[in-house]
Simulated scan of single mutants.
Amino acid sequence: MSDAATARRRGRGGGGAARRAERTAVSIETARYIERNIPNFEVLNDEALEIIEANAEIVLEEIGVNFVENPAALERWREAGADVDGERVRMPKGLARKLCATAPSSFTQHARNPARNVEIGGRNLVLAPVYGPPFVLDLEGNRRYATMADFNDFVKLGYMSKWLHHSGGTVCEPTDIPVNKRHLDMLYAHMTLSDKPYMGSVTEPSRALDSIEMSKILFGDDFVEQNTVMTSLVNINSPLTFDSIMMGALEHYAAHNQAAIISPFIVGGAMAPVSVAGTLTQVLAEVMAGVAYSQLIRPGAPVIFGAFVTSIDMNSGAPT
């Protein structure tokens, strides 16, 4: 038999094996991310929105925000035209909004399986698992601290759910692994037990870098630098304080074109005014400052407007 014939025979055999493998492989169906066609429910009228937006800029200009233990951030703000007094940054009216203008209105978060890519922004709705529970309930109804085995199971369940478009991040907190290395195990679980998009670590700037390096192993260096493959949750220490850990993580993600959810953590009456309008004003001021800072790191870096706003239990002081 000629070499050419042998090559053709091997090619046909390989194709058949691939087709058989495809037919027998387990395939988990996932619904496409949701595109909303119904109009938004407007809680506030245009006048109220304009008042909140104007007051948010007044907060940034007259009160300012603190960037603590982060001299490099203070220098970036100074060069951008802000008034820096110690660790307090006051932004002239219009500066934050001007910087925010370079943030993309929408972006694609790429998944290991391109069919699971999601579009963030516009009228799109992407559903993801819960973030951060320290406890789990077992099948007998007992509450206990979560383990890495629990984390793996939740990632698998998230992958199997047709209605979850995203694998999430800290689907539970695996307390049986030391804090300084558990982010590696958690990210590895998202990468290997699911092919949906996932979130990176933010608990320390070096762990954000670890997340970026692991993603480069999975997707390739150039792909990660040019495309968004991770989101991350960057909380603001309300009221009006940006700590070096969260900002350090944000700096790494923004520099490498990875997305951050800029989210205040506000308990109304404790970390913000009691009134809804006052709280929303603070939320907008804090998010604008965070988004603007991400654009100082890399204009065009993808970001998401996030918010955790709740009320306080006057008996215990806990969020309700």
Results as ranks from 00 to 15, higher is better:
residue 207 R to Q: 13
residue 75 E to Q: 13
residue 215 S to Y: 02
residue 154 F to M: 10
residue 90 R to D: 01
residue 247 M to G: 00
residue 200 G to R: 08
residue 256 H to M: 11
residue 264 P to E: 09
residue 194 S to H: 08
residue 94 G to A: 09
residue 129 P to M: 13
residue 272 A to I: 10
residue 202 V to H: 02
residue 266 I to R: 00
residue 109 Q to K: 00
residue 185 D to P: 01
residue 155 V to L: 08
residue 231 T to C: 11
residue 128 A to L: 15
residue 287 V to G: 06
residue 187 L to F: 10
residue 157 L to Y: 09
residue 320 T to F: 12
residue 279 T to Q: 04
residue 250 L to W: 05
residue 163 W to V: 11
residue 21 A to T: 03
residue 72 A to R: 15
residue 139 L to W: 04
residue 134 P to F: 14
residue 2 S to V: 01
residue 156 K to G: 01
residue 4 A to Q: 10
residue 286 E to Q: 12
residue 154 F to C: 01
residue 93 K to N: 07
residue 7 A to Y: 12
residue 73 A to H: 11
residue 77 W to R: 10
residue 217 I to H: 07
residue 183 H to P: 04
residue 307 A to M: 15
residue 48 A to H: 14
residue 249 A to R: 00
residue 162 K to V: 13
residue 70 N to I: 09
residue 36 R to Y: 07
residue 154 F to V: 04
residue 295 Q to S: 08
residue 81 G to P: 10
residue 194 S to T: 07
residue 98 K to M: 13
residue 207 R to V: 00
residue 197 P to W: 05
residue 280 L to H: 05
residue 1 M to P: 06
residue 60 L to I: 04
residue 289 A to E: 02
residue 65 V to D: 05
residue 217 I to T: 07
residue 194 S to Y: 09
residue 312 I to E: 12
residue 121 G to D: 06
residue 241 T to P: 00
residue 191 M to P: 05
residue 37 N to T: 15
residue 29 E to P: 06
residue 294 S to G: 02
residue 218 L to T: 13
residue 182 R to H: 09
residue 165 H to P: 04
residue 20 R to W: 07
residue 89 V to Q: 04
residue 206 S to A: 11
residue 25 A to S: 12
residue 43 V to G: 00
residue 93 K to H: 05
residue 259 A to H: 01
residue 304 I to D: 00
residue 188 Y to K: 11
residue 117 N to D: 15
residue 11 G to R: 15
residue 280 L to D: 01
residue 125 L to K: 01
residue 259 A to V: 01
residue 148 M to K: 07
residue 247 M to C: 07
residue 294 S to Y: 02
residue 267 V to S: 02
residue 143 R to D: 00
residue 288 M to Y: 11
